[in-house]
Nucleic acid binder design. Structure first.
Lengths: 250, 250
DNA sequence: TAGATTGTTAATCGATTAACAATC
DNA sequence: TAGATTGTTAATCGATTAACAATC
């Protein structure tokens, strides 16, 4: 019995790697370091989800990768690969069940389990995020906001209390908060991140334009608008440069 | 005289490709299809920029890739490659001039030429973006906002007028606006994009969670928070899954 | 000169795409 | 059965990293 055979017999075990087989013929398997999915695939899943939910409201019950690809403007094989990471199994000729697919994506992304989060920095962007009810559909619930501005502390914004930043690192463990959102100016973002780490926060969604320094095990996700803007303005600038097609020199 | 020699003599011409040399010894050169830079490199440039500006205020005048790499937590050779796309030339042993580097990045990204933009969708996020003064440092100026909500039309938000969406496609060409920002709900984003295209807008910065369908030549940049959130919540969920390290089977 | 650092070419790594086998 | 579609393996493509030569 080889590793390959094993994987064939129990398909769901393909994510495991056979590392040893002991005397009693018991297979010792080890989960791969990363049951990994490529980052780009991960980021495309919500798009499929959004599309599928819309499809479901229209009463469509089955869907194929070629149709998804046509509607979402990408190649079918990419869709297939992406969806496979969620563990869904399709039927040749008939495709996938729309509702199963939706559930598979939601489960895979952990949208069924609510992530409670603290938000720090109640400026324009922070306020906007506090008011974003749609986050709840994606398993995110912002339970409190923090700031250092006395004029803001004590306010309720979009039904969330604004508290003093001092209290955050105490409150986080007491409320079992694992996710922090930073919407402060760049200057104080690192200090806020340090506080979050102190409070035992595991993952940081960072909207400030700085690369945070945090311990190895902390998950950081940067949402830096300026990076994005850079890309856009470069492309736009290139568009309006005189398009020198041929040029004489020397 | 070969292409290589030519590039050596006039370094700034390395972005051109020699395609022919005519009888009078005039070199005919053609700009490459894409004076391209990898997307990831492009998105990293603002980070270097931010870091360098801070460095300059501290009075540092020269910098090496290894130091940048140490401070920004990436490998020196990546820094070097990224910076090279801007056309900057360093000196072995002494590194790069900080101020030259800053200017090179700004020029490369087109931050010296202002991009005037229309914003459509004055909700929480739209309002936040309207109030983002820092955009001006990156060559972005939002000159007007649009909405369909009569309660919002006519307001001034962060010194910008909110106008009726009807007027956008007329105003855009008259004001030579080439950039549009969409901060509407997903449902109407496609309609807004169509209007923008009608108004001759060349590039769209889309914050709505939909994949827009636009003509080939329109530049679209999606800033989809849900994609990001997906990635983050997946990683966090994985963290809290029981970490099966070894497992017996059959 | 020696050593640090840039610039560049080659190797590696990972994601995408193409090709094809399996299946309903 | 024939044809459409999934699932999977192999090839391609692009970005990162390693190795090394050039230079101050």
């Amino acid at each position: 019995m080889t590793a390959v055979t094993f994987a064939e017999i129990i398909p769901s075990y393909t994510r495991y790697v056979v590392i040893d087989m002991n005397l009693s013929n018991t297979l010792i398997v080890k989960r791969r370091e990363a049951p990994s999915i490529p980052q780009p695939s991960l980021m495309r899943l919500p798009q499929y989800h959004h599309y599928l939910v819309e499809l479901e409201t229209k009463g469509v019950s089955r869907i194929s990768c070629s149709v998804i690809g046509r509607d979402l403007n990408c190649v079918p094989v990419q869709v297939r690969k992406d969806l496979q990471y969620t563990g869904i199994i399709g039927k040749p000729k008939t495709g996938y069940s729309v509702s199963e697919l939706i559930r598979a994506i939601e489960t895979f992304l952990g949208w069924n389990n609510v992530n409670e989060a603290f938000l720090v920095g109640v400026g324009n962007l922070g306020t906007a995020l506090l008011g974003h009810e749609r986050f709840s559909k994606f398993g995110l619930s912002i339970v409190a906001a923090f700031d250092t501005d006395p004029a803001k502390i004590g306010l309720w914004i979009h039904d969330k209390a604004v508290l003093s930043l001092d209290k955050m690192s105490d409150l986080a463990p007491r409320m079992s908060i694992h996710l922090g959102i930073i919407t402060t100016p760049a200057e104080v973002a690192q200090m806020v991140a340090d506080e979050m780490v102190k409070g035992g926060i595991q993952a940081i969604w960072n909207f400030a334009p700085v690369k945070l320094k945090v311990p190895e095990h902390i998950i950081v996700h940067n949402e830096d608008l300026y990076n994005s803007l850079a890309s856009l303005s470069w492309k736009l600038a290139r568009r309006f440069r005189v398009p020198i097609q041929e040029k004489e020199a020397v």
